[in-house]
Design a protein around this nucleic acid. Structure first.
Lengths: 215, 215
DNA sequence: CGTCTGTAAACTGTCGACAGTTGGCAGTCT
DNA sequence: AGACTGCCAACTGTCGACAGTTTACAGACG
């Protein structure tokens, strides 16, 4: 997507800062101390401030006048709003994928699905990594770069919520079933059904996330 | 949404630069000379660079290593990809609006529609301003802040294309009809139909924009 | 005449320093 | 004791300057 790798310090700072936010090393609600982070990254405040502006435009940070940047805190309403956006995007992606998929796309989707099942039966939890990989594969099949881009941004914010669903076995099982149903619809080229399944899938995930936020 | 008003120079620079890009004062494909713009805004390069990063994250500028920022140029493929995104977002918005609309929402939609008809019959061209107002009113009725936010960003990029459709009378008429059909579907609470009409509407606009880009 | 090369101007990327604002703390007054 | 006031430290916002890279141009060479 982007160049081999960001050569500018600001570009690198974007990546590092993003990681700090997404891993929770900078907890939600906390302020971003420019001098401290800049020193930690071994750069000056200039490039760091540029990186902060970039991430703020992505929605991963919020800017408060004269108080710098903060990691945004999400309440229940925000989660719902976020999933309405995600549903709009991923349903469209699922429909497009059903109309445009090629054999390679299908192979890729099935590979991810099978790896999930293997892991699950081997007693390994369904890792978020594989869920992400599935949605990623679906996006590739949809061949809509702008939609894919936005989905990635939304998924980042979902990660930011850090509501870990990985321990919930019934949820994992339901998700894997959703994924397989989706694959069938995509293979059949049934756009409408693919969209419906995706809607159901995301509605389940959203509900799960809301209840898991209530503690 | 954002703060009362940007007090920081970088914040103001974002607004001014955005205007410069959207009005075409900085033509598509042109490079953004930091010293020149900074001098023109009466600020130093620091805040300006922050503003550039922000707009780049919005997609209104593209960053090239050691070559600064450029106003992106859109080809036909880009227009299609952009409208796939817009369709995904606005169809979802139309569906949500049909399920959530209140009397105030309906009144607002009808007011915009009637103003359009009045203008048209008075021989005034259908201004882009009113088209925007209609879609804006629909977004308010949908009550989905994150979707609304993304639609605004997409609409900005559509403006960037600067394919002026305002002179095309048949297109204007068709658009106004689409809008009225949409209002009917929304009033009836028919989400599915609202989505279909929006899809048709945007597909027409997209086609129009592509042909108007071919010169 | 076209191409290649070397040099200089222009521009971006980065830094350190200064100014203005915010938030907390101590001291004072009621 | 509680509230108010004034000061101080910490931090953000901004600027000017320097270093490295790109680009344009002029001259040399095939």
């Amino acid at each position: 997507m982007t160049q081999p790798l960001h050569l500018s310090l600001a570009g690198q700072a974007v990546d590092v800062l993003r990681e700090l936010v997404l891993t929770g090393e900078l907890p939600a609600g906390s302020r971003v101390n420019e001098v401290e982070i800049a020193h930690r990254l071994g750069i000056s405040r200039g490039p760091l401030r540029e990186a902060i502006r970039g991430l703020a435009a992505e929605g991963l940070l919020e800017l408060v006048p004269h108080r710098g940047a903060r990691v945004p805190m999400a309440d229940q309403a925000e989660v719902k709003a976020l999933f309405e956006l995600r549903t709009a995007l991923e349903c469209a992606a699922a429909e497009l994928a059903a109309s445009r998929r090629t054999d390679v796309d299908i192979a890729r989707l099935r590979a991810v699905s099978e790896e999930s099942r293997r892991n699950y039966h081997a007693g390994v939890k369904f890792p978020y990594r594989l869920d992400l990989a599935f949605h990623q594969a679906l996006l590739e099949a949809a061949r809509s770069p702008r939609i894919a881009e936005q989905v990635r941004l939304v998924q980042q914010k979902v990660v930011l919520l850090r509501a870990r669903l990985e321990d919930d076995a019934p949820h994992q099982f339901a998700s894997m079933d959703d994924h397989d149903e989706l694959i069938n619809a995509v293979v059949a080229g049934d756009a409408q059904r693919a969209g419906q399944i995706m809607r159901k899938h995301l509605s389940r995930v959203c509900a799960q996330m809301i209840t898991s936020l209530a503690d």
